[in-house]
Simulated assay, not measured.
Amino acid sequence: MRIDGRRNDQGRHIKITRHYTKYAEGSVLIETGDTKVICTASVEDRVPPFLKGKNEGWITCEYNMLPRATQSRKVREISRGKIDGRNMEIQRLIGRALRSVVDLKALGEKTIWIDCDVIQADGGTRTASISGAFVALVDAVNRLHKRSPFKIYPVRNFVSAVSVGIVNKVKMLDLCYVEDSRAQVDMNIVMTDTGKFIEIQGTGEQYPFSRDDLNELLAMSEKGIKNMIQSQKDSLKMDCLWIGTGESDEKVNNSK
């Protein structure tokens, strides 16, 4: 049995709370086991200089961990005067994952800022951030869509992520911190609801792993991602009807 009593192929309990904060166009508290992340989506009517005049939008992310999200206090980045390398890697991953399922031309000249703030960390913070940020993003896009319908609805697919690994020669889904810290192989998988991969991050931290190991871990991750996407759909309910339709508000409403 695992430290929290789960089966090896069983993910942690998922809870997604929408509209968690007052001001952001989209805001979510996502909880996967004891990992908790606040994800917000903020809309700006401008784009970075490299996109000006191209009638194309942008999605970017900032990721951070509160000082006492972990067992010992983590110094704030502002106190050190530089961005933590790990944080930079994670926020770029989140941005890539979300941009991959959004038609940026359909979005128009708008920037959606995603902020992921880890308030409690117990492993899988980057994967929880991607999954929660997607729901916040959809809420922000829907607010724009209801105010002024897009000709083409920008969000094309669901996206989610999960961790898998090999711990003491046992393959496991959705590693908590204790498992992750002991893993011989550690992977983070990002996928769409159509089963297509966006990113595969895998490392043999203590020894190489085989193609068979990889295939088994990918199959296990697909199960976890399907479960997370179902949780996203359950959370969004009727507010996810436009995803993947490429249709306007009026057309979707008329098709009900």
Rank of each mutant, 00 (worst) to 15 (best):
G95M: 08
N142K: 13
I114L: 13
R73G: 02
R73Y: 06
G108E: 12
E89H: 06
K146Y: 13
R96A: 06
R86C: 11
L144N: 13
S100Q: 11
V159Y: 04
V138N: 15
Y153S: 11
G81K: 12
Q120K: 05
S100D: 05
S148R: 15
A121M: 01
L98M: 04
I83L: 14
M88D: 14
S72L: 10
H145R: 13
K110M: 03
K74P: 03
R147T: 15
K110V: 01
A136N: 06
V118R: 00
V138H: 13
R96N: 09
D84H: 11
C116D: 02
K110A: 00
D115P: 03
D139V: 09
D103W: 10
T125K: 04
T111Y: 01
L107G: 05
Q120A: 06
A121T: 09
K105I: 08
A136R: 07
R76A: 14
D139Y: 11
R73N: 02
V118A: 03
L98K: 01
V75D: 05
Q91N: 14
A133S: 15
D84L: 06
L137Y: 06
P154M: 06
Y153H: 11
T125G: 09
N142I: 07
K151Y: 00
G81N: 13
V118K: 01
G108W: 12
Q91L: 06
T70E: 13
A121Q: 06
R92T: 10
S79V: 05
G123F: 03
V101K: 03
D84V: 04
F158M: 01
K105A: 10
K110G: 02
I94Q: 03
K82G: 00
A97L: 10
R76G: 01
T70N: 12
C116I: 00
M88F: 02
A128C: 08
V159N: 04
R92E: 12
M88H: 10
W113G: 01
T70G: 13
T125E: 09
A69Y: 09
A128Y: 08
R156Y: 01
V159D: 04
I78C: 09
R96Q: 12
I152W: 00
G85T: 12
A133P: 14
D117P: 02
V118L: 00
A140L: 07
V75A: 15
E89A: 13
V159H: 02
R147C: 07
C116N: 09
R96S: 02
A121G: 12
S129N: 05
F158Q: 00
Y153I: 11
I83G: 00
D117C: 04
T111H: 04
F150I: 11
A69K: 08
R92V: 09
S160F: 10
